[in-house]
């Protein structure tokens, strides 16, 4: 099975599996000094779309409520703007904590985050193969793993605009086409050991 089929067919799990309990521990350490002041929530440009506010998310992380955390959209809505990290009166690394939750969702292939996870994995697959992202390939991979026949149409107007301006290259840039396969493999090896 190639890796793309893997992105596609990996068993999605509805509930957070057991190892997640352990993988939550480092994140709990990151936010354990939270005083629930709500500054992070007040600073977050995406809070309006979140089901749990960032403050509530940290509360659940501290209590280890993995079911609540991994059914919430909150961390997947973080756009990595670093406002909360900048303003938290306890100086907690909140953006990194959001990313760490995304990494668990990607690793465990949790169903509620399928869309973003597949997008990110398709992008990385293209980088892995060529060292740089190849826009056409990456979006094709994404559409393929999403199996939604209507999805490409959402991007069609932009795609056409970019293509007509020559911004999406159909071919690989001539130089620097080295693969990053070895780097990716080593990272996987170290992370799984």
């Amino acid at each position: 099975m190639n890796r793309l089929e893997k992105i596609e067919s990996e068993q999605e799990s509805e509930t957070a599996p057991a190892p997640v309990i352990d993988s939550l521990a480092p994140i709990r350490d990151m936010v354990s000094a939270c005083i629930q002041c709500g500054t992070c929530t007040g600073s977050c440009p995406n809070a309006f779309a979140m089901d749990l506010t960032p403050r509530q998310l940290w509360y659940n992380v501290i209590r280890g409520e993995k079911e609540t955390i991994f059914h919430s959209k909150t961390f997947s809505l973080c756009s990595v703007c670093y406002y909360c990290t900048l303003r938290c009166p306890r100086g907690l690394p909140l953006t990194d904590a959001m990313s760490a939750l995304k990494q668990i969702a990607a690793k465990e292939n949790l169903a509620p985050y399928k869309k973003s996870v597949r997008f990110y994995k398709s992008f990385m697959e293209s980088v892995r193969r060529h060292g740089r992202v190849r826009e056409m390939e990456f979006m094709t991979l994404y559409f393929m793993v999403m199996k939604n026949p209507l999805l490409p149409f959402r991007f069609a107007p932009l795609g056409m605009k970019l293509m007509s301006k020559g911004k999406v290259s159909v071919e690989l840039p001539s130089k620097g086409s080295g693969t990053l396969e070895a780097i990716f493999r080593k990272v996987e090896e170290l992370e799984n050991s």
Binding site: A100, K102, Q103, V117, F119, Y120, K121, V127, V187
Partner: peptide, 8 residues
Amino acid sequence: AAEATSYL
């Protein structure tokens, strides 16, 4: 995308 999948 990388940060959303793997820290290392």
